Simulated scan of single mutants.
Amino acid sequence: MKKLALTALLTTLLATPALAEEKPGEHFEGEPSGTLAEAVANFSRYNQELADLLAKDELTMPDVGEIHVLTYTLENALGKISEEIEEMAEVLEEVHLGSETGNVERVRSNGEIYLESARILIP
């Protein structure tokens, strides 16, 4: 009986279109996030898709397959957001150091660069 259940489960997984496209040893790449704006858009869109799927009373194997696929795009988005936040922290440190020394130009130029990225995250 366990063997039959396992066979049924594996058959369902293989029949799931999202997973059927994935060949053994291969992974989906997900949608790229080349810029912070793309990353934030993908993060927002795919989080909503994940929330919609998780809100179902019952998750089907096709739902799980869809979640599997969308996590690749979410991982790409988070990676880009993380990378950009690191850069933002470095630029903000330049604003901070400029403010300590009274260097108005350093504060202004780095502050504008910082805010350009920060406004993408929090409009």
Rank of each mutant, 00 (worst) to 15 (best):
L74H: 03
D52I: 09
L36M: 08
A8C: 13
D52V: 05
L9C: 03
L14C: 08
K2D: 05
L14H: 07
L13E: 03
M61I: 15
P123T: 03
A37W: 00
A118E: 13
E26W: 11
V64C: 07
I81C: 13
E100T: 08
I81A: 01
A20L: 08
P24T: 09
E75D: 12
E84T: 13
L121W: 01
P17E: 14
V40F: 02
I67T: 00
G25I: 00
V104C: 11
A89E: 15
E66Q: 09
A89Q: 06
K3H: 11
L6T: 04
L54Y: 11
G25D: 02
K3N: 09
V69F: 00
P17Y: 00
L6H: 11
E84M: 13
R106F: 10
R119I: 02
I81S: 07
G65V: 03
Q48K: 15
L97Y: 10
R108D: 09
L92W: 13
P62L: 15
S99H: 04
M1R: 09
M1Y: 06
S117G: 09
P17A: 12
P17K: 11
A5Q: 15
E22N: 10
D52N: 14
E86K: 07
A8H: 11
A15R: 11
P32E: 02
T60D: 03
E31F: 03
D57S: 15
E75Q: 07
V69N: 10
S82H: 09
A55S: 15
K3A: 11
G30D: 00
E100K: 08
E86W: 06
I113G: 02
T7H: 10
H68E: 08
